Structures are given as structure tokens and as C-alpha cells.
Simulated assay, not measured.
Amino acid sequence: MKKILLGLLIVAALSACSSSEEKVDIPTQVQTLNESVEMNAATLTDVKSGNEEIRAQLEEGQQKAAVMAEHMKMVKAFEGTGVTVTAVDNGLHLTLPGDTAFQSSKAVLNESIKTILDPIAETLMTYPGTDAVIKGHTDSSGPEEFNQKLSEDRAMAVSTYLMDKGIDSSRIESIGVGSSEPTDDNDTRDGRTANRRVDITITY
């Protein structure tokens, strides 16, 4: 910026001294100089703004790449466990099958599901800026009140396990929705099995 101003001042000075026969209009030259300075300042501002936009785009791309890398790592970690992992906006969505996660009609975690929850806890520890929403679901069998309570208790059981692993409770939201959000047909055995689940959404 200083070089531009210096150059403009030199040009102005040379123009003023180029002909002793011409009347020197100092106010006009000062106005012209100021206009040139303002134009160059505006150009520099546009360039700076463009650079910041490019930098923001690069940072966003790097963040998305990191999320995808973590996604692939978790998909690999859960191979053969029955857990479904999908990418969602700003995070990951995991579905844990309730039949293998809990004892029948209870909110007691099976030992097998704990080995699945461990890498989830590790991910939350590795990324302190992440949060988790844990949602319990049931099929439509049985009284609605019982299903609602069971879904809440199962979501809380998962939340408690993660908190016992060192995840702060402020980063975890636990929700039970009973049978209100089925993903399959409750009129079939397989459908009811699919609907008995726990969803975990990890947001970055």
C-alpha cells in the first residue's frame, strides 16, 4: 500500500513540474491523487476479501474431508456388528439394533453392545467439539405407555454408558420416542425387529 501511495505521489510531483509554462492547479491534482488512492484501496480490499473467501473454502473442504475420514473409520469399526452408519449434515448417524443391544423388553445393555459403544465414546473424546443425540425406539407391540418408558430408559442406558466413559453429560441428549418413528412395517416380524433400535447422531 505504501509503495502504491509513494508511486502516485511521485507521478503527481512530476506532472506538476513537467512544464513551467502550465499553470499548476494544486487542488485539482490533490483531488485526482485522492481519487487514485481510494481506487487502489478499494482494489486491495477486493483482493483481500477474495483471499479470505478462498481460505474459508479450503478450510471447509478440509473439515469435510476430516468428517468423511472419520465416517469411513467408524464404518470399518462396525463391520459385522449390525450397526448402520450413514453420513448426515455435519455428522454421522448410527443405528444400533435393539434386539442385540438390550435384554428382551428391558433397558439393560448386553455385553456385545458395549464393544460397539466404546469406539463411539472414543470418537466423542477425540473430538471435544462433538455432541451426541441418543434416541430410543420400540415397535408397536404392547401398551404405548410401556413402549414410551422403555424407549426412554434404553436411550438413557446408552447415554449413561458413554458418560461413564468420560463424556460430559452436557454433550449428550437422551430422547425416547416409543413406537412413534418406525422405519419399517410393524405388521411383520422383521419390521418390528427393525423398529426396535437406538439411533445415535454425532454432530461436528
Rank of each mutant, 00 (worst) to 15 (best):
E145Q: 12
V67W: 07
E35F: 05
G50P: 02
P119K: 01
K165D: 02
G142N: 07
A101T: 11
P182A: 09
E122S: 08
E79V: 04
E35D: 15
A16T: 03
I134E: 10
D89E: 15
T45Q: 15
T81R: 04
G82L: 05
G61M: 04
E181R: 09
L92H: 05
P182T: 05
S179H: 12
T45V: 12
Y161F: 15
S151P: 03
M125H: 12
A101K: 06
E173C: 00
I202C: 04
S15H: 07
K48E: 13
E22A: 14
L150K: 09
S180C: 03
S19L: 04
D139S: 14
A42T: 12
I172K: 02
S104C: 00
E173L: 10
T45F: 07
A65Q: 11
A157E: 09
L94C: 08
T138H: 04
D99Y: 12
L9Y: 03
L14H: 01
A194E: 13
I202E: 03
H71D: 03
P143C: 00
V177G: 06
R192Q: 15
Q29C: 00
D89N: 11
G61L: 03
P119S: 02
H71W: 10
A157W: 07
T32I: 08
A12F: 02
K76W: 01
L96Y: 14
D118H: 03
M39N: 11
M72E: 14
D99Q: 10
I202D: 02
D185P: 01
I167S: 05
L33H: 05
M125Q: 15
L8M: 11
M156T: 13
M156V: 11
T203K: 15
Q62K: 14
T183L: 13
L92V: 06
L162K: 06
T203P: 00
K106D: 10
Q148D: 14
G191N: 01
R171N: 04
S19A: 14
V83C: 02
Q148H: 08
L96C: 07
G7S: 10
S20M: 09
K76H: 07
I116R: 04
T100N: 12
K149A: 15
T123Q: 14
K3V: 09
M72H: 07
D25Q: 10
T138D: 04
Y127S: 11
I26F: 13
S105A: 13
L33C: 03
H93Y: 11
P27I: 05
K3L: 12
Q148N: 14
S104M: 08
E111A: 15
I10S: 07
D190A: 12
L109P: 04
N186L: 01
